[in-house]
C-alpha cells in the first residue's frame, strides 16, 4: 500500500471521561497522509468516541490531538478549520430530510467554502456520479434506500473536498444487500488516495484496504497491526477472542 507520508492525524496520550466514566484511556495513534486505518473492537469500547474526538464532536480532557497540523482545541477557529478538512460519515446517514439530495450536497460548500451555487451544483453532480446515483439528485433522502442514502452522505462529505475522511460504522445500519454498494464506493475512495479512518466490522474491507488495523477494548488500543499479521497471528488474547467471535458470524 501507500508509503508513510506526513502525519495527517496524531493522537498522543488522549484521555477522555464521560463524567466519572473513563472512556478513552491514553490513546496513542498516528495516521499518515493517504493511509487507511480500520478501527474495530467490541461495542462500548470507545471507537466512536475516538474518531469523534478527531473532528471535535467530542472534547477530551488530557493529551493532544493534531489534525493536519492544527491542534484540536476548544477554540472555535481551530475547530472550524479542522472540520473543513475532515469529512465524516455516520452510521445513521444523518442526511437533512428537508433538503433534496442536491441541496444536501451543496449546503456546506456554499455556506462554509463560499462557493457560488452553480459551481457547487456542478461539483455535487460530479460526486453523485462518483457514488453512482446522479439520477437521484432531486429526490428527498426519505425517498432513497439505505445504501443510496449512505452514498449520498459520502458524497456530501466529499463535497467539502476534505483531506481526511472519518467513517463510523457506515454499513452497520444497512441491509446486507446494500452493504456492498457502499463498500465499493469506499474502496474506490481509498484507491484514489484519501486518508481514511474507518470504524467497521467489515473484515473483508479491512483486509483489502487497511494499511493497519487498530483493535480497541475498554477505552484502550490493545493491538495495532497490518492486516497480514492482524488476522493470522494476533499478539493479544483479547484480539484473538474478538476475531473468533466476529469471523464466525
Amino acid at each position: 500500500m501507500s508509503g508513510k507520508g506526513a502525519p495527517a492525524i496524531v493522537m498522543e496520550a488522549v484521555h477522555k471521561w464521560f463524567g466519572e466514566f473513563h472512556v478513552l484511556k491514553g490513546i496513542d495513534l498516528e495516521v499518515a497522509e493517504q493511509q487507511k486505518v480500520v478501527i474495530c473492537g467490541p461495542s462500548g469500547s470507545g471507537k466512536s468516541t475516538l474518531i469523534r474526538c478527531i473532528n471535535a464532536l467530542e472534547d477530551y480532557q488530557q493529551g493532544r490531538i493534531v489534525v493536519d497540523g492544527i491542534e484540536v482545541t476548544k477554540d472555535v477557529k481551530n475547530v472550524e478549520a479542522i472540520r473543513r478538512e475532515v469529512g465524516m460519515v455516520f452510521q445513521q446517514f444523518n442526511l437533512f430530510p428537508h433538503l433534496t439530495v442536491l441541496e444536501n450536497l451543496i449546503l456546506a460548500p456554499m455556506h462554509v467554502r463560499h462557493m457560488p451555487r452553480k459551481e457547487a451544483e456542478e461539483l455535487a453532480m460530479q460526486l453523485l456520479e462518483r457514488v453512482k446515483i446522479p439520477e437521484q439528485a432531486h429526490k428527498y433522502p426519505g425517498q432513497l434506500s439505505g445504501g443510496q442514502q449512505q452514498r449520498v452522505a459520502i458524497a456530501r462529505a466529499l463535497c467539502m473536498k476534505p483531506k481526511i475522511m472519518l467513517f463510523d460504522e457506515p454499513t452497520s445500519a444497512l441491509d446486507p444487500e446494500m452493504i456492498k454498494e457502499v463498500l465499493d464506493v469506499m474502496v474506490e475512495l481509498a484507491e484514489a488516495g484519501m486518508t481514511m479512518v474507518v470504524v467497521t466490522h467489515e473484515m473483508g474491507f479491512a483486509k483489502s484496504v487497511a494499511d493497519y488495523i487498530v483493535f480497541m477494548d475498554e477505552g484502550e488500543i490493545v493491538e495495532i497491526a497490518p492486516p497480514s499479521t492482524f488476522f493470522t497471528s494476533p499478539k493479544s488474547e483479547r484480539t484473538r477472542l474478538f476475531l473468533s467471535q466476529i469471523l464466525h458470524h
Binding site: 464532536l57 472550524e80 465524516m88 455516520f90 444523518n94 437533512f96 456546506a108
Partner: peptide, 27 residues
C-alpha cells in the same frame, strides 16, 4: 430534532447560526 442532524451539520463545518438556520430551524 435528532442529535445526528446537529452532528452532521457540525461535521460539515457549519457554524452555530448556519446550522440552526439551514438545518435545525427549518425542520
Amino acid at each position: 430534532i435528532p442529535k445526528g442532524q446537529y452532528e452532521a451539520a457540525m461535521a460539515l463545518g457549519l457554524g452555530y447560526w448556519q446550522m440552526m438556520g439551514y438545518v435545525v430551524l427549518p425542520q
